[in-house]
Amino acid sequence: MGSTIDITSAFIAGAPPGELQDVVKDIKALTSDNDPTLIAKLKPAFQKYNEDQLIPVKLPGASDYVLITAYNRVPSSTNKYYDTQSSTSFEFDHSTSKAFGSQSYTHETTHSDLIQSILKSLSTHFAEHYPSQQQTASASSSSGYTVAATPEDDKVAILLSTTRSSPKNFLSGRWRSTFLFNPANGTLSGTLKVDVHYYEDGNVALSTTKNIPDVSVDGGGDGASIVRKVAAIEKQYQEEVNRAFVGMNESSFKALRRQLPVTRQKIEWERVRGYGLGSDLRGEAKR
């Protein structure tokens, strides 16, 4: 059996979209008596989760969101990140998902002009295709994008993420896009991921990934042409996911669904002994 840190780190890695803080509460409830300092020891697990999931975070005093990623982390830091759009750096508490300590910051890169060009075109694409921020009693959504040079400064990372959570409807989901543009040869590669969690009277999770190999960008590799390629790839993937959902709804989900009796009412499984074992459950008419 693994150590407590290994086990709880696995819980964090598997946290559904928008439900990390619920997992943290459960970890605290299960382990507080044994190790009150466990949450602090789990910082590497929280950091990996937040960066892998491209968590959108709202900076203090700002209206837009920036993403937590390995690409826009300040060098030699584990909890400090920067936003190229606002020329700001900030600290991020990985266990509470809160940003603080914003200050002016410009990241040195040879791709500054290209990054600004991409940001300009990406803002339009983002506004047209990603949901706006929402916070109500029944649902919340947060979306953001980040453009930054890779640590080696040889490519430009283009990252988009949106998270929607509706606890009252037992549903949460996240879309993540990670693209890398190589200015040396004008190619774009990337990964797109969708995660959905539905947990009403059960627990159903869907995770799907599409890897994009190097593809050429038409138009000379300026910001507008790169974003057009990004938009085309995202649209194609969304259509593929939609078709897959339709197919699953007509086949896999239908097979999983409980068959309702002729009354069209849900079976009260705690009273199942009171049902006739034959005709009632098969939906056949009683003779």
Rank of each mutant, 00 (worst) to 15 (best):
F90E: 03
I158S: 01
A149N: 14
S161T: 02
Y130S: 01
T162H: 14
I115N: 04
H129D: 09
Q103I: 15
S97P: 06
D93Q: 14
A157S: 07
S132A: 13
L159P: 02
S102K: 07
D153K: 13
E152R: 08
S117I: 09
P151W: 05
S117Q: 11
R174D: 05
T163N: 12
A148C: 05
Y105E: 05
R164I: 12
L119T: 06
R176F: 10
L114Q: 06
I115M: 13
S121M: 08
A127I: 09
F179I: 00
I118G: 01
G144D: 05
W175H: 05
E128C: 03
Q133C: 03
I118T: 02
S97Y: 04
E128G: 02
R174I: 04
H129P: 07
I115P: 03
E91N: 10
L119D: 07
I158N: 02
L159A: 15
L119N: 13
S89V: 04
Y145M: 00
I118H: 01
K155M: 12
S95K: 13
A148H: 00
K120D: 07
D154I: 06
A148Q: 02
G173E: 11
R174Y: 02
S123R: 07
H125P: 05
T124I: 12
A99S: 12
T146D: 00
Y105P: 03
H94S: 15
T162M: 10
Q133H: 15
S141D: 06
S165M: 02
A139K: 01
S161I: 05
L119S: 14
T163W: 11
H111M: 10
S104K: 15
F126C: 04
H129N: 12
S161Y: 08
Y130T: 00
T163Y: 03
S86W: 07
T106Q: 11
H107P: 05
G101W: 07
S166I: 02
K168Q: 14
D113K: 09
T96V: 11
S140E: 15
I115S: 11
E91I: 03
S141T: 05
T163H: 06
T96L: 14
Q134Y: 10
D113E: 12
L160M: 09
K120H: 14
T88R: 09
Q135L: 14
F90L: 05
S166H: 06
Y145D: 00
L114A: 03
S172H: 10
K98E: 14
S102E: 14
I118K: 01
F100L: 10
S89W: 00
E152W: 01
T136K: 12
S138I: 15
S138D: 07
E108D: 15
H129F: 10
F126L: 09
S86T: 12
S112E: 11
V147W: 04
T136W: 08
A137I: 06
F179M: 03
A127H: 08
Q116I: 11
A149T: 13
T96F: 04
